[in-house]
Design a protein around this nucleic acid. Structure first.
Lengths: 102, 102
DNA sequence: CTCCTGTGTAAGATGTTGCTTAAATACTTA
DNA sequence: TAAGTATTTAAGCAACATCTTACACAGGAG
């Protein structure tokens, strides 16, 4: 989860995620969306996203196709879910505190 | 949103957020939970969290009391929400693409 | 095999982060 | 006012992140 949150903290990487959210794209097409930065830079972002479990990669001949991996993001989203202080959540946390202190 | 996500990417800061999720705590009490790092280091984390809009601070005599500000996290959570590719979401995005390309 | 296209890797410059220690500030108490 | 407590600010440093350019590798086409 730590890795996924760090990956998502970068705006370039968030844009990449949106790009491949519901379709596969080759690395070149992705890089073309970022005129400001070089191809290798985008390639590095892609590696970080794959390592963090946020992207799936598949080779297709010459090219490498990337697509979002929703499960990866879900793990990171768990943190946010856990922060809403609804009553149910408080009960669960209280129970965990009991366990921890015994 | 960018700032909030960057703030949350750090594990120490996430722990701080959990600590003050549903109660106020003085800076000293917070720092005491991190035996590994110095008080100034924790103070810096607190500043970052306040700047990112994730924490509220209030002075009480000598001390400074911190508490989570749920709205701040909600803004960051918007990104995660927007990534689940449900049909409604796709419709909305398609509409936005139409607008953008016209 | 050779050339071209698509892509990743290596090495290095530069900026940012997270920590430390030392000093400063703000408030409380005697 | 002087001393003590709670906390932040300042300065400096080591580690890390992000970018660049140059190079290497893999696969398809001639």
């Amino acid at each position: 989860m730590d890795e996924a949150l760090r990956a998502v903290a970068d705006p370039t990487r968030r844009t990449i995620l949106v790009l491949v959210r519901d379709r596969e794209l080759p690395a070149g097409d992705i890089a073309a969306r970022f005129p400001g930065i070089s191809r290798p830079a985008v390639s590095q972002h892609l590696r970080i996203l794959v390592t963090a479990g946020l992207l799936d990669m598949r080779r297709d001949g010459n090219r490498r196709l990337y697509r979002m991996r929703p499960d990866g993001l879900a793990e990171a989203a768990v943190f946010f879910e856990s922060m809403w202080s609804d009553p149910l959540r408080r009960l669960k946390d209280a129970a965990e505190r009991e366990e921890g202190s015994s």
